[in-house]
Amino acid sequence: MSQTVTRVPTRPRTAGPPSAIRLGLSRAAFETKMFFREKDAVIFTFAFPIVLLVIFGSIFAGDLEGTGLSFSQFYVAGLIGSAAMTGFQNLGIGITVDRDDGTLKRLRGTPLPPGSYFIGKALNTLTISFFQVVILLIVGVTLFGLKLPSAISTWLTFAWVFTLGVIGSSLLGVAASSLPRSGKSASAVIAMPFVVLQFISGVFIPVAQLPVWLVNISSIFPLKWMCQGFRSVFLGDAGATLEIAKSYELDRVALILAAWVVGGLVLCLLTFRWKGRRDG
């Protein structure tokens, strides 16, 4: 006597909610698309460092203290460091505006995890900084005779300095976004310290020519170490004589930039606010 087996139909598997990383990637694509739609912002963002390079590279056309290196080569390395830190300014201002106009408050009420929002901002910053660096390298090579390194190890140094620098300065920008009282004051509050840091961190002036007290201040922040790391890539051994320690101290550069990644994350967790001060 045969028995029939009744199969109970199973429910089709439903896809679970997307992960925070996947949502972060989607947010990054959205942020990048919105950035490139603002043509005036795109033109200013990418043209500004090029204009500075052309101006400084044309005015100071001589060699650096008998090193055989031109001022333009020095400025390329410094402006690459500045481009890698634009996340501090962009995020510091952008997040403040998002908080002031209620964007953050609305996002907080959606299923979007907070981490996905920051992932989107960080990847958008990496993308913009990468394109800025590529454009600066093209201009440096074509107009000012910049020699690109040939050793793979040197490009690996570039990669970790760029990655740690962008992430650390971006996290610092997220933390600094809590300082302005409103979106209207964000540009003044965030842009001023960024400009000051450029002048005391080796972007425009060799750090060995700066007063010791200014060097001590700049050494607290990541931009000085980012520029130092990029000089090791693009100026080589000849440029080491321009450093205070007569060495690029890459181990110290790595340690301080990594510390800023960790410290910046702690600052974000302690200071970040989803609501504006007027919202209570």
Rank of each mutant, 00 (worst) to 15 (best):
M1Y: 08
S2H: 10
Q3C: 02
V5L: 14
V5H: 11
R7L: 14
V8I: 14
P9E: 13
P9V: 05
T10F: 05
T10V: 14
P12H: 13
R13G: 09
T14A: 14
T14E: 15
P18H: 03
I21S: 12
L23P: 03
T32K: 03
K33S: 13
R37E: 12
K39H: 10
V42E: 03
F44Q: 10
F44E: 02
T45R: 09
F46A: 09
F48N: 13
V51H: 03
L52K: 02
A61R: 12
E65N: 10
G66K: 07
T67E: 05
L69N: 03
S70G: 15
S72C: 06
S72M: 03
Q73G: 10
Q73C: 02
V76I: 10
G78F: 04
G78T: 03
L79S: 11
G81I: 00
G81Y: 04
A84F: 10
G87P: 01
G92D: 07
I93S: 00
T96I: 01
R99V: 07
T103S: 15
K105H: 12
K105L: 12
R106T: 11
P113L: 06
P114T: 07
K121D: 13
K121I: 04
N124C: 08
L126Y: 15
T127E: 11
T127S: 14
F131P: 04
Q132R: 13
V133H: 05
V133Q: 03
V134S: 01
L136C: 07
I138V: 15
F144G: 12
F144W: 09
G145W: 02
I152N: 04
S153N: 11
T157S: 00
V161A: 08
L164P: 08
V166M: 09
G168L: 04
G168S: 13
V174M: 15
A175H: 05
A175P: 08
S182Y: 05
S182W: 05
K184Y: 11
K184A: 15
S185G: 00
S185L: 12
S187Y: 12
V189Y: 08
I190T: 03
A191M: 14
A191T: 15
Q198V: 05
S201V: 04
I205G: 09
I205A: 07
P206K: 08
V207H: 05
V207A: 09
Q209R: 12
L210D: 10
V215Y: 12
N216T: 14
I217V: 15
C227R: 04
C227D: 00
Q228S: 14
F230K: 00
R231L: 02
S232C: 08
G236W: 02
D237H: 02
G239F: 01
L242N: 01
E243K: 00
D251F: 10
A254W: 10
A254T: 04
I256T: 06
A258N: 02
A259T: 13
A259D: 06
A259Y: 08
V262Q: 06
G263R: 07
G264V: 07
G264C: 06
L267F: 12
L270Q: 13
L270I: 07
T271W: 11
R273S: 11
W274H: 04
W274I: 01
W274N: 08
G276F: 01
R277S: 15
D279L: 06
